[in-house]
């Protein structure tokens, strides 16, 4: 008898068990992220440094927006306690991303992007837990591409490394959200 025959949950994990397990996985990503933040002075040209600051600030802008989106979801009253817990955890990751990216901007002599006074989200369509999860999954999937598109642009390779570590975290968020929606958590082998 195989393990999966002995315990059906191993082949078809419940949404709750998957979500709770995912939080354990993500703590490792947070550690990787912090270790990826550049600590040495960047010796690039002023133009290269300015471009790195612009890339970082665009990322900070998107991360602020993600924090706001999870806040909207958390306050919607539509999320079950298990999903709410994951949403708050993921929001915490995005806050950590902001802190790490802002620190990098400051190390480069720039000013980190501030959150906007107001964010506009498609509130009228967020009428169920599934709709909130779909919206969050869409943002996380986009974040994977945004970081994939930013990584090759950094002059400072330490920043590419830090961005890759954040990308990995966003990809895990996306997979967990897809799983919570009953979708294949990893729908392909390549993403760009």
């Amino acid at each position: 008898m195989t393990d999966s025959q002995r315990d059906p949950a191993l082949t078809a994990p419940s949404r709750r068990s998957f979500l709770v397990g995912s939080q354990l996985l993500l703590s490792g990503a947070a550690v990787a992220l912090m270790s990826g933040v550049p600590t040495r002075a960047f010796a690039g040209t002023r133009g290269a440094r300015a471009q790195d600051i612009t890339i970082l600030n665009t990322a900070i802008g998107a991360e602020h927006e993600a924090v706001a989106a999870y806040q909207l979801g958390a306050e919607s009253g539509l999320l079950s306690s298990a999903v709410l817990s994951v949403a708050v955890t993921f929001q915490g990751h995005h806050k950590e991303h902001v802190e790490a990216l802002a620190k990098a901007v400051q190390q480069l002599g720039g000013s980190p992007a501030e959150p906007l006074d107001k964010y506009t989200f498609p509130v009228s369509s967020l009428t169920s837990e599934a709709a909130v999860l779909e919206f969050a999954a869409k943002l996380e999937r986009g974040a994977v591409s945004a970081y994939a598109g930013a990584i090759p642009l950094f002059e400072d390779r330490d920043l590419s490394n830090a961005a890759a570590s954040i990308l990995a975290d966003e990809a895990m968020h996306w997979a967990v959200l897809r799983s919570a929606l009953g979708l294949d958590p990893v729908p392909g082998a390549f993403f760009s």
Partner: peptide
Amino acid sequence: ARCAACHSLT
């Protein structure tokens, strides 16, 4: 879908 972290239609 790659654009969704930063863009939306509306």
